[in-house]
């Protein structure tokens, strides 16, 4: 999850944050990290670029991007499916 946090920081240009500042279960949007809809698009691109995962169903978005942990779980599940 630490790598994923680093990737999120770079992708979203969160210069003032370190990976340890982002809680595993901290909400990414609104009251948590305060991300918005443009960040959601950036995170979709991140999944595509780093993990070759295309988020095909838009309804999955709120679940997948709930926190770093839910993102990591989604990536793991996707990688397991591929294997």
């Amino acid at each position: 999850m630490s790598d994923l946090k680093k990737q999120i920081i770079v992708q979203l240009n969160l210069k003032d944050l370190k990976p340890e500042d982002i809680g595993d279960d901290q909400p990414l949007f609104v009251e948590g990290l305060g991300l918005d809809s443009i960040d959601a698009l950036e995170l979709i691109v991140l999944l595509q670029q780093e993990y070759k995962i295309k988020l095909s169903n838009a309804d999955d978005g709120p679940k997948v991007f709930q926190s770093v942990r839910t993102m990591a779980q989604y990536i793991k599940a996707h990688q397991a499916q591929k294997e």
Partner: peptide, 13 residues
Amino acid sequence: ENREDMLTPTAFI
């Protein structure tokens, strides 16, 4: 670099 794919929105906007 990304061959017209996977473009991030921020720089475009």
